[in-house]
């Protein structure tokens, strides 16, 4: 069994230093890894990134993160990423990482993702250059996610998790105004997850959304935005052996 701890949208700043650390220090008792689903800072400044780095550095479990839109606001995502990596965090953008947990290979594929909307209510690559760029950017994020998940399958990972900031499904946006769904996620992310396969998809971004959802291909989705889960993190148990038995039962 793999125990995945996850939280997003922690929005740390100088005034929040040390707030999450006491809870994070309990992680070895309840989880094998910690995933951070973006919006780790408020404005994406290096100063805020250092607060995040201090909060997770030296934890007894590996930490994997994607950035969120807030982490891009100061237009220094590379510097934010560097600060987090110096603290030992695996920061992913169109990339994957493999972790060894109790003899099992656990893969995490991550991208920030972007918006565009969901099937039947989405933008498309049409019209003005900016509109085309908007959707093409989302498509690039989704392509990176799909390729990373496929890479993890080729590397023999028994458990694969898709980590994004923007949502792959509308289910976990319930509670947000429907008018803003196109700014909260894209079906392209779900299509990538369903095409490549994953055991769990985690995202943040939708503070007023709900925790539980599922892709149309049956992958469980969890919105782990801190305002949604109302805790320092949530823990999800994934049992690869049970899933393989279920697959064998399928005629």
């Amino acid at each position: 069994m793999i125990r995945v701890a996850a939280v997003g949208d922690i929005h740390l700043g100088p005034d929040s230093a040390g707030l999450l650390r006491p809870a994070f220090d309990t992680l070895p008792d309840c989880a094998d890894l910690l995933l951070l689903a973006g919006d780790l800072t408020r404005h994406g400044t290096v100063e805020e990134a250092r607060v995040v780095a201090d909060e997770v550095s030296g934890l007894a479990v590996p930490v994997v993160a994607v950035l969120g839109n807030h982490d891009h606001h100061d237009e220094r995502p590379e510097e934010v990423t560097a600060v987090l990596r110096e603290a030992g965090v695996h920061v992913l953008e169109g990339q994957a990482t493999v972790l060894e947990v109790g003899g099992e290979r656990v893969g995490v594929a991550g991208t920030k993702g972007f918006g565009g909307g969901f099937v039947g209510r989405s933008g498309s690559e049409f019209g003005e250059r900016m509109m085309k760029d908007f959707i093409r950017y989302t498509r690039r994020c989704a392509d990176g996610l799909r390729a990373s998940l496929e890479e993890l399958a080729e590397e023999g990972c028994g458990t694969r998790v898709a980590l994004t900031h923007f949502s792959p499904v509308p289910d976990t946006l319930a509670g947000e105004p429907p008018e803003i769904y196109p700014f909260l996620g894209s079906y392209l992310l779900a299509e990538a997850i369903d095409t490549a396969g994953a055991d769990l998809a985690l995202h943040g971004h939708a503070h007023a959304g709900t925790e539980h959802g599922m892709t149309s291909g049956g992958v469980p989705v969890r919105n782990v935005a801190q305002p949604v889960i109302r805790r320092a993190f949530n823990v999800y148990h994934l049992n690869a052996q049970d899933r393989q038995k279920d697959l064998q039962r399928v005629p």
């Binding site: 109302r230 823990v235 148990h237």
Partner: peptide, 14 residues
Amino acid sequence: VAGTAAPDHPEEVS
């Protein structure tokens, strides 16, 4: 204000 406590139970996803 967002909660900062650790969870008291996990979710069995699969």
